[in-house]
Nucleic acid binder design. Structure first.
Length: 313
DNA sequence: AGCACA
């Protein structure tokens, strides 16, 4: 017989308030937020030369994002990202997990919930008068997610692969940085579907030239349709101009891009692409011996210099 | 394998 007394259940049980959706009035929320719930994500795997701005610009698109900070004191930068609720933080943690932050340095993020919440001061950002840049906190600022602009991710312009057959590839999955992360559907201008040929054929590309901003297209049939060539290349990112050159038995083509990078992408992505009007196999794409608009080097002059000293006209 | 333009 337990003399426990009365059941302590009273109507005092206030149903827990729903997550803060839209407070009726802009109440100054005291920084000591909902007590102990952790709504901060701890981020490692950032490249050593990461800038706070870079992390901030990545995070600012995530729902509920409030502020971020990087601690550079440790050997490796440690990032902290504060969200308005624990759910948002956990969703963001999952969304960022293993995200390739920097393809160049191959750095992928590792995220976990932080041990402590990121402490947000009140006026922040602009006030820290240049004393210690590393302590400056980046807050969510004014860009709420209401106006959601296009996210800063520019999916790599991977053309929808045809079936290169010789490399049994699957079409790369559409790049989704949020990976199943529930974000409001926003009508985004479909990132220019880059037409790709529907067929690729193997191509032996022996002896190429050093990368440059101009591509040499070989193995085009003699009566390939220039417009078909143009419509394929002119939509590739970085395309500047092309020149088709009809020779006796075959046709070649030069394509200038804005930079070596865009040329290199096309060099890879469209290698072996089959044009219907070509009547050959796949096209062979090489880097041009001379970039567009540059005169061929004086072959029997400068190039023969034994010490390699270039001679200028 | 074929590399122009200025």
């Amino acid at each position: 017989m337990a003399g426990a007394g009365m059941h302590p259940y009273h109507q005092q049980w206030v149903s827990p308030p729903p997550p803060p959706v839209v407070p009726p009035m802009p109440v100054e929320t005291p920084t000591r937020a909902s007590a102990d719930e952790i709504r901060t994500v701890f981020i490692t795997g950032l490249p050593p030369d990461v800038k706070e701005r870079e992390l901030h610009n990545l995070l600012r698109w995530l729902p509920g994002f409030e502020a971020s900070q990087i601690n550079f004191k440790a050997e490796q930068p440690m990032g902290f990202a504060l969200f308005s609720t624990a759910q948002y933080a956990m969703a963001a943690k999952d969304a960022l997990q293993d995200l390739v932050f920097d393809a160049e340095s191959k750095s992928a993020l590792h995220t976990e919930m932080a041990k402590k919440n990121l402490f947000v001061k009140r006026g922040v950002v602009s006030e820290s008068s240049s004393l210690d840049q590393s302590k400056r906190l980046r807050t969510g600022g004014d860009y709420s997610h209401a106006g959601y602009a296009a996210p800063p991710f520019h999916p790599p312009p991977a053309p929808v692969w045809g079936t290169p057959g010789y490399i049994a590839t699957h079409p790369p999955p559409p790049y989704d940085p949020y990976g199943g992360y529930p974000i409001p559907q926003v009508a985004m201008p479909t990132p220019a579907p880059i037409p790709a040929p529907n067929r690729y054929a193997p191509v032996q590309n022996t002896k190429d030239n050093p990368p440059c901003n101009t591509l040499f297209i070989g193995n085009l049939g003699e009566n390939v349709n220039e417009e078909e060539v143009r419509s394929l290349f002119s939509v590739q990112p970085g395309f500047k101009q092309m020149k088709i050159l009809r020779q006796e038995r075959n046709t070649v083509c030069f394509i200038e891009f804005e930079d070596v990078n865009s040329a290199t992408n096309v060099h890879q992505n469209l290698q072996g692409a089959v044009l219907t009007s070509s009547g050959r196999g796949g096209m062979r794409i090489q880097f041009s011996k001379n970039p567009f608009g540059r005169r061929k080097d004086n072959v029997n002059g400068a190039a023969a210099e034994p010490n390699g000293a270039p001679t200028y006209p």
